[in-house]
Design a protein around this nucleic acid. Structure first.
Lengths: 224, 224
DNA sequence: TCAAAAGTGTTCATGATACACCCATGT
DNA sequence: ACATGGGTGTATCATGAACACTTTTGA
């Protein structure tokens, strides 16, 4: 089948990772400023070339951990972008992934890089390199869909949180206000969370109960 | 970025296409018998290498049309399989797709091939080459999911059909019996189909009205 | 006239939505 | 004491599920 070997080894395989988190009450993605020639000054999603000794998945995982020093980050393959001219350097087929990090993981961007790294709210993205606008768009769609029919919201929150914080997250990603009582009724019906014996302290108003997710693995549940 | 060019051009990019149709009241996939060495006698999903001058999508489309001489066949990217040893010939990263062909397209398998080509019900697949078992499994899951929340059933049926045939299709892919009256109520509520002035003829029993889909483009609708 | 699939509405149960007040704390 | 977010229940409405008989044709 692969006789004319070299003729077909024309492309480089890369992975691109759209890393999501919530910051300042908005969904954010992590971007890197491009330092070199044709895209200098533009921003791109983290990524890199796949090495011969690595699977595509492990390459994505490595790229993720280069940015976020954290374990158990949710990572899922998104889509493969295979247009011919998507990269001016040459033929690069990119397998895109998306990842979800909780708020508490945000400060971990303190890994040192030669270029600058920053979070951007998805409503105000800078000029993007390559087809990364398209990739981020696809990732948002997928994330939004998954949050409506699975419990992966647990990836977006720290270990302990209040029900209002949980509700706020859903409102942010779903772009709509939810009724507090109905929301809590549903959350309860699915046993999504369990109460801890702790409360928020030092806040101006009545302390809120802190909750944890009862299950921290992906499950299909018809939330919204 | 791509300095050590050749070092990274280690892999071949391929596409594999899981082609679905319904036959004998079951969901079927199209398979090709392998003629050569390590997988001789096993069966595989159609596919082929991506050429330097082609996008990944167009390569998939071409592979599909090599098998099914038909226009407007539904084709969607499924997942990219990038394990190191998935192909004994060498490093092949495969971008898998799935396609949906209506019953009337089934006879079009009469394209001539050096190897044999056949439809297999997904409940009784033969021994499969490569990781194609995994690929077919993923494709089934995706197809089933999409049929529950979109209208893509129109891809699986001929131009005109009876409501019973439509219901039967859903029962086949969802693995469960549906109530006839509730089914028709829902189909009606979404304006999924429109009646033609034709009826089935020559059948043993009462003739049924023939219907068409009102829209033949993918749409999100919460069917089941 | 019989066998077999086509066609058609109503009732009931369940889940979704709308809605308002008291509570506990920091300042 | 007051401003602010925390916490709770009920009534209504819409949607989904269960269910049986008559009709039309070919044989």
């Amino acid at each position: 089948m692969i006789k004319k070997d070299n003729q077909y080894k024309f492309a480089v395989i890369a992975t691109d990772i759209v890393i999501f988190s919530v910051k300042d009450e908005e969904l954010n993605v992590l971007l890197i400023e491009m330092g070199k020639k044709p895209f200098k000054g533009l921003w791109a999603v983290p990524g890199g070339l796949v090495k011969p000794t690595k699977t595509v998945d492990s390459s994505a995982k490595r790229n993720l951990h280069n940015m976020i020093k954290m374990k158990d980050v949710y990572l899922e393959q998104l889509y493969t972008f295979g247009k011919i001219d998507r990269d001016p350097y040459g033929r690069v087929v990119s397998v895109a992934y998306f990842a979800i990090v909780p708020d508490s993981g945000i400060h971990l961007q303190t890994v040192k890089h030669d270029t600058s790294v920053d979070w951007f709210p998805i409503s105000r993205l800078p000029k993007l390199a390559y087809d990364h606008g398209e990739i981020i768009h696809a990732a948002c769609e997928r994330l939004r869909a998954k949050l409506t029919y699975t419990n992966i919201m647990y990836c977006l929150l720290p270990e302990e949180f209040t029900l209002s914080e949980l509700q706020k997250r859903y409102e942010i990603v779903l772009y709509k206000k939810l009724d507090k009582r109905n929301f809590r009724k549903k959350i309860g019906a699915f046993n999504l969370v369990k109460k801890t014996d702790k409360k928020t302290l030092g806040k101006p108003h009545r302390p809120a109960n802190l909750f944890q997710f009862s299950k921290k693995r992906p499950e299909i549940i018809p939330l919204f």
